[in-house]
Amino acid sequence: MKKCKKIILCHNHPSGRLEPSEQDIMFTERITKAATILGIEVLDHLIISENNYITI
């Protein structure tokens, strides 16, 4: 059995606006810090809209 050591965060913006909000940025920072404490690496955070995506 292998254990997870890396994760990718992903969420959508149904509005279609890809620009990360202040809450998106703060969430990414908090999750990354918490994951580091647990020995998990956050590889990326994707925001997805209907036709495109962006990484934070």
Rank of each mutant, 00 (worst) to 15 (best):
M1F: 05
M1E: 12
K2P: 02
K2I: 04
K3Q: 03
C4I: 09
C4N: 01
C4S: 04
K5N: 13
I7K: 01
I7C: 02
I7T: 03
I7A: 02
I8E: 06
I8F: 08
I8R: 13
L9P: 07
L9W: 00
L9I: 15
L9D: 09
C10Q: 13
C10A: 15
C10M: 14
H11R: 14
H11M: 08
N12E: 12
H13E: 09
H13N: 10
H13S: 09
H13Y: 07
H13L: 04
P14L: 08
P14V: 04
P14R: 03
S15D: 15
S15W: 08
S15V: 05
R17W: 07
R17M: 11
L18D: 10
L18T: 12
L18W: 11
E19F: 08
E19S: 12
E19C: 04
E19Q: 11
E19P: 01
P20N: 14
P20L: 11
P20E: 12
S21Y: 10
S21T: 15
Q23Y: 06
Q23I: 06
Q23A: 10
Q23K: 07
D24V: 06
D24H: 03
D24K: 04
D24T: 11
D24L: 03
I25D: 07
I25W: 07
I25K: 15
M26K: 11
F27V: 05
F27C: 15
F27L: 14
F27G: 00
F27T: 15
T28E: 07
T28I: 02
E29M: 09
R30F: 06
R30L: 13
R30M: 13
T32Y: 04
T32G: 04
T32S: 14
K33A: 13
K33V: 01
A34K: 06
A34S: 10
A35S: 15
A35I: 04
A35F: 05
T36F: 04
T36M: 05
T36S: 09
I37Y: 11
I37S: 00
L38E: 14
L38V: 04
L38H: 12
L38M: 11
G39F: 06
G39V: 06
G39W: 02
G39T: 12
I40G: 01
I40Q: 01
I40M: 06
E41M: 03
E41K: 06
E41A: 04
L43T: 10
L43N: 13
D44S: 15
D44H: 14
D44V: 05
H45P: 00
L46I: 10
L46E: 07
L46Y: 15
L46S: 08
L46H: 15
L46V: 08
L46R: 15
I47E: 02
S49D: 02
S49V: 02
S49A: 13
E50C: 05
N51I: 01
N51E: 09
N51V: 05
N52W: 04
N52I: 00
N52S: 14
N52D: 15
Y53P: 01
Y53I: 03
I54L: 08
I54K: 09
I54Q: 03
T55L: 05
T55M: 10
T55G: 09
I56D: 01
I56F: 07
